[in-house]
Design a protein around this nucleic acid. Structure first.
Length: 156
DNA sequence: GCCAACGTTGGC
DNA sequence: GCCAACGTTGGC
């Protein structure tokens, strides 16, 4: 059974992994998410072909910098098993993995980044429940409605 | 670098 | 199950 295309926003610190890095490598396994809500979105709700807004956090001008897509089915995050990784999780096992990820594929960079500040100024149109601008929300993987997707990209 | 907000851990 | 302590996120 197929389900209609969904939309997401995924945050990354550009010092760590930027939209330019994604353009270079083409596809990247989204390792290192250690938040259950974000994991659940990747494990349970994301489907190949879903749209992804690529967001730069912890940077001079935080905002949406590009478009990506879900490029692979969910599978266990290999870094949880690697003792030397900073994402190692002693409570995870191959039999019972705790962390799952999807692969993210490059689509395009935005002609013009959409700064968080500008996104905030459209809060009334985007809705109070939009997790990106909801007070206190720090989710690094979050759902975007089709209407929000369209509205945000119209700002480009 | 600061710090508010939030999530997780662990003692009890 | 409560909640204090701690760690992390991420804007500023």
């Amino acid at each position: 059974m197929t389900t209609r295309k969904r939309y997401w926003l995924m945050k990354s610190e550009p010092n760590d992994f930027s939209i330019d890095d994604l353009e270079r490598v083409g596809t990247e396994p989204w390792t290192g998410v250690r938040n259950y809500q974000a994991r659940n979105f990747m494990r349970d709700s994301m489907q190949v072909g879903d749209g992804v807004l690529f967001y730069h956090s912890n940077t001079e001008v935080p905002g949406i910098y590009g478009i990506a897509e879900v490029a692979g089915a969910p599978h266990p995050d290999p870094t949880q098993f690697k003792k030397k990784s900073k994402y190692f999780d002693a409570k995870a096992s191959h039999e019972e993995p705790r962390w799952f990820l999807i692969d993210v594929g490059f689509v395009r960079k935005l002609e013009r980044p959409i700064p968080l500040e500008e996104i905030r100024s459209h809060a009334d149109r985007l809705g109070e429940d939009f997790a990106l601008i909801r007070k206190g929300s720090r989710l690094s993987v979050l759902p975007v409605t089709a209407a929000q997707w369209k509205y945000l990209l119209a700002l480009e």
